[in-house]
Nucleic acid binder design. Sequence first.
DNA 1: CTTGTCTCTCACGTCAACGTCAGGTTCTAG
DNA 2: CTAGAACCTGACGTTGACGTGAGAGACAAG
Lengths: 125, 125
Amino acid sequence: MRIGELATKTGVSVRALRYYEEQALLIPVRSSGGQRHYPDSAIDRVHLIQMLYAAGLSSRTILDLLPCVDAKVNTPQSRALIRAERGRIDQQITRLTQARDRLDAVIAFSESPASGCTRMDTTPQ
Amino acid sequence: MRIGELATKTGVSVRALRYYEEQALLIPVRSSGGQRHYPDSAIDRVHLIQMLYAAGLSSRTILDLLPCVDAKVNTPQSRALIRAERGRIDQQITRLTQARDRLDAVIAFSESPASGCTRMDTTPQ
DNA sequence: CTTGTCTCTCACGTCAACGTCAGGTTCTAG
DNA sequence: CTAGAACCTGACGTTGACGTGAGAGACAAG
């Protein structure tokens, strides 16, 4: 399929797909006229890339991880790399959980009768 | 205390503290000569700000949240705001957990005897 | 063949959270 | 009083993941 179709099927922009190619994350074949053509499997790969981006990984890190996730590469080094990134994600989850707990504490306090509630409204919308 | 001392005590840069003031997150008093002076409580506040930044919140969002966390503001709107941000953090935790699980699956597969392990080395360093 | 839609390659713009440099001022130790 | 450290205000630089045109080529439909 061409780039526009892949874009609509995955929900990412055409620009983003070109950027992925620039970062060597997703290399399409080219038609005689120079247009990009992607296989169906590209849909899943885009979703995977998006998942890793959403987890806060950089293009470079994703580039390093993809061959491992593809299970085409399986060396002690690649396993160490994956474990390292897993650790980073874990740390970030810890940080986010701490922040969430902090907000939960604020919520609990602000809703307790003991707090100096302005009481403009008791019934939540 | 002055800005340098606060910087070393909190581990953030002087530039960052000036930036926090620019974003109205932490307003110091000024000496007659124009130098910033912070109370001891600023240390905790910087740590709180750093925690929220680390959770991926923007300056603007933090600015909105701080009065609530300070428990100086407690309106239905402020509570809704906190819950909304809590929800965002929760979503991000979900995303991160999915990505982590994905990597775990890769790890499990790459370490299973069935995988085409290159077996360059069996003993981990 | 023409029209319209899609696509191509530059290449500059954006936004956030600072880093960094310049040139000048304030404070503190001796 | 004076040196030097710490501080001040601009103001431009950085990084990553794209957004946004500009101008030109590719391709299906009639």
